[in-house]
Every structure is written in C-alpha cells, then in structure tokens.
C-alpha cells in the first residue's frame, strides 16, 4: 500500500495554483488540500495522480467572514476550526460527526465538498441550506448554486481545472435547526443523516428546509417531507409523517451492508430524530 510515483508542487499563491492546475490537470494533476480522502485512496492505488498541487497553506482560502448574504467560508478552512465554533453553533455540532479529531485537524471544508462523498456532512449542509460555491480557474471566477453542484457519487460540477475557493452559506440566525447522523461506530461514514431547519412563526414551522445525506447518491432537499411540515406546528405526529414521506421519497443507495428497505428505515430514523432535536 504505497502510492504510485507522483510530483508534488507547492505554488506560492492561489493564482499560481490555479495556473498550475490549468497546465497539469490534463496530465493527471489534482489538488491536495487536507489529503484525508485523497491520500488513503492513493495508498490503495485507487487514485494515481501524476501531480499533486498543494493548496493547504493559503491564508486567503482559510477565512471565515460574515456578510450580508450570510457566511463565507474559505475552502481551506479545516473541519477542526469549524468544530471549535468559528462558523457558529450548527456547523460546530455537525463538524463533531466528521471522522475523528486528528482527521478533522487536517481535512478541509472545501476538500470535502469537492470530493462529494455521498456521506459527507458538509455536502448535506450545502444542499440543505442552499449555499453558493465559488470556483476559480485561469479564465476567472464562477458561482455554482448548491442545487447544481452535485452530479453524482464523488462527482461535482467543477471542471478539472477549477479550484473550489469558498462557499457562501445563508445566515440562519433565529432559525431552529436539528441534525442527526446514523453511523455504525463513532466517526464512521454516515449510513444516513438529516439536516433540518425552520423559522418558528406564530407557533408553526415556516421556510422549512429538510434534506438527507448518506442515503442517496447525492445529498438533497426532500420536498415531500418539507411539504408535510410547512405551516404545521411542531409535534411527534407530524414529525413521524414527514419521516415516512422522506423514507418513501428517496432512491436508496445499497451495498452489501445496507439494502434498500434498511436504507429507507435509516433515513426515516435520521429524519425523525433530527426533527426532534430541532423542536
């Protein structure tokens, strides 16, 4: 389990990283940020990049800024930084479900999104909150809304020469939120997760956003479940109906550990428990 030979590059700036990516991506060049997904794949020789372009040290990519549109999080922000609360309470809580502390110290927010593992917590957050991804290449900067970002398992709208530089997430001040993840062991890849948020107005739920991750090829909002909740008062019975709608509405991923019926049951459990936490 030793990686194949590769060339390691450490550009001095984001601009030179982008230029390097333009030149090397067609020749098997890839971005190296935290390396917590890429390097193990390289060790198993499941990934064999000829070039690695290290973007992990740019201060420019590690900023977290609150602005009028919400929170802008640099792609290079480590999970551990968000775990410690730099992005607010909800992101800190979600970050606690990502692997284990040593991995969180290295892995990055942007890396997780670009990697697009179906069980990625940040991918679920992006899909549910409806953020906007900023990507940069030699030609310039582009914005990709969450709804158009995920293409499939480990596949996004990013072109091979595009560097994910930051993400803008809407401000959820005053919203109720809940997150629940089912995993086999502490820190394992999620078998199913749910993020839900709403504004409580006059005792009923408004603007409901509910989505799941880890259960389908890509994380997404579940309109059928949201419709059950929208305008209703929080309560066990409506939560159960929303969870049932979620379970029925998904196209479940299956493998030798989790069949379709079990995945639906896991999604149902994650949704019901996320809702209970939000209430």
């Amino acid at each position: 389990m030793k990686a194949c030979s590769f060339s390691y590059h450490r550009p001095e700036s984001v601009d030179s990283a982008v230029a390097m990516l333009a030149a090397l991506a067609p020749a098997g060049g890839r971005v190296l940020a935290g390396g917590q997904s890429l390097v193990p794949m390289m060790a198993y020789r499941m990934a064999q990049p000829a070039h690695l372009i290290d973007v992990s040290r740019f201060a420019e990519l590690q900023k977290i800024e609150a602005g009028p549109a919400g929170l802008r999080i640099g792609a290079g922000v480590r999970h551990a930084v968000l775990r410690r609360g730099a992005g607010g309470e909800m992101l800190a809580f979600v970050a606690g479900h990502i692997a284990h502390e040593p991995i969180r110290n290295r892995g990055t927010f942007g890396g997780s999104l670009a990697n697009a593992d179906p069980a990625s917590e940040w991918c679920c957050v992006l899909a549910v909150l409806g953020g906007v991804v900023e990507a940069r290449n030699a030609a310039g900067v582009r914005e990709i809304p969450a709804a158009g970002f995920f293409a499939g398992v480990m596949s996004t709208a990013l072109a091979e020469d595009e560097l994910l530089t930051s993400v803008a997430l809407p401000d959820l001040a005053g919203w109720r939120w809940g997150f629940y993840e089912v995993s086999r062991r502490a820190g394992d890849y999620a078998l199913a997760m749910c993020l839900v948020a709403w504004r409580l107005e006059d005792g009923v739920m408004r603007g409901v956003r509910l989505g799941i991750g880890g259960a389908e090829a890509v994380p997404r909002r579940l309109p059928a479940a949201e419709a059950v909740l929208e305008g209703a008062a929080p309560g066990d019975a409506v939560f159960a109906r929303a969870a049932d709608a979620a379970a029925a509405g998904i196209d479940p991923m299956t493998d030798h550990n989790v069949g379709a019926a079990f995945r639906r049951d896991l999604a149902r459990a994650a949704v019901r428990r996320a809702l209970a936490r939000a209430a």
């Binding site: 086999r184 062991r185 502490a186 890849y189 030798h256």
Partner: peptide, 28 residues
C-alpha cells in the same frame, strides 16, 4: 457486533481495509 470478513459469491473478498473490517474504537 462488528468484525466480519466478507466474501462475495465469486470468492472475491470485500473487506480489505479498516473501513470495511470494523474494529471497535474506545467509543464502542
């Protein structure tokens, strides 16, 4: 509760990393 070596019906071994063969952590 956790550890199991799994083969598929062709004799291909599916559990070839510690992501598949689940050892308990201190949490378990």
């Amino acid at each position: 509760l956790l550890e199991e070596i799994v083969y598929d019906e062709t004799g291909n071994i599916l559990t070839i990393s510690l992501a598949d063969f689940l050892a308990p952590t201190a949490h378990e």
